[in-house]
Simulated scan of single mutants.
Amino acid sequence: MTKVSVIIPVFNESENIDHLVHELNSYFRDETRFSAEIIFVNDGSSDDTMAKLKKAPHHSYSYKIIGFSRNFGSHAALRAGILRAKGDYITFMYADLQDPLTLVSQLYDEMERKGVDITWAFRNSTAAAKTEKLFSSAYAALMRKYAVPNFPRRGFDVVMFSKKVKACLDYNIENNSSIFIQILSLGFKQSSITYSKLARTGGKSKWTLSKKVKLLIDSFVAFSFAPIRLVSFIGIIFFLLGIIWTGYIVFRKVMFDDLESGWPALLSVLMVGFGITNVSLGIIAEYLWRTLDASRKRPVFVIDEVVEEVLQPILDTRLLTDIK
């Protein structure tokens, strides 16, 4: 039977553990198309989350509990779960169950029906606050423009992928990076479904402003060179303005001699000097970016499929004559 690994990162989710395990048991007890492997990754919780997970009655699925020594973040937890996953398909869920468990079956059906390696669950609605919606929209717009052109407009929290994708992720375990964008950038055959995100029923969201800012920075540093190009662009603009200003003050000095001595020349030197400095920093940063990109050891290409031609033996016609 096909096995689906469901990775659930948890961090100070003591209030939700009982409800989470109850829902997992109820849902996967009736699922007959595949068996479920649940991988809980305790991301350094300071409450009794780990103790509750160990004592919980896990009946309808096989399970693993991975405990971190400290809080490393949800993306690190997902990567650890992927590394230990044994399923034919792998997906993510979250302890607050804002993403309904029915998504697991819907994603599985889409994977089987379309024969793809990656299926995304795109949100068509959400109960999030306006500030969160604004951040998500701005983040998606920036990523589409400067990093990943096929980044979805509505964002995503859930994805299911095959062992082929798992092998690529296990080979390139990136730190300070977005695992979702890494999966998106691999290519492979992809499909998508839509769903409605639910309101959180218990506990407090761990998706704080500082984590959102870190994700934004990590995404740009890991997948875009736009910030580096911005430095170079600003340098070029200031350099050109400095040259124009220098020409202007020389013209005024020669033709009219009506400019005060001191500040026009100083401003000219500052603009040209600042421009040259920024252009130089941009060039250095380009080399550093390429060094960083090489140090990640991301694959230059990803092979999706190999078809080998089997050569059929050619019989010598003289042998056929001898046989006759």
Rank of each mutant, 00 (worst) to 15 (best):
I249F: 02
F72P: 03
M50W: 11
Y94M: 00
Q106D: 14
P100G: 00
E308I: 12
T2S: 08
P299V: 01
S45L: 02
I228P: 00
I217E: 13
P313Q: 03
F301S: 14
R298E: 09
Y248N: 13
A138Y: 03
L24M: 11
R318T: 11
N175V: 02
Y61T: 06
F72W: 03
D18I: 03
Y27T: 08
I181M: 15
D316I: 10
V231Q: 12
I217W: 14
A285K: 06
R290L: 15
N172A: 10
Q312T: 13
T32Q: 07
L267F: 08
V10P: 08
G87S: 02
L315C: 06
N150C: 04
I249V: 14
L97W: 06
E132K: 08
V250C: 12
I243V: 15
F11N: 06
A77I: 02
L103W: 10
K3Q: 15
R290Q: 14
F28M: 02
D322P: 00
S268C: 14
L78S: 05
S14F: 05
S196N: 14
H59M: 08
K197M: 11
A147P: 10
T201F: 02
S196Q: 15
L241Q: 10
Y146N: 06
S177V: 03
F34I: 01
V6Q: 02
M143W: 06
L311S: 12
K197E: 15
E174P: 01
L270H: 07
A36I: 01
R229P: 00
Y139M: 00
Y287K: 12
T194S: 13
K189L: 05
E308D: 10
D157R: 05
V159L: 02
T194Q: 08
T131A: 14
S185H: 04
K145S: 05
L20E: 01
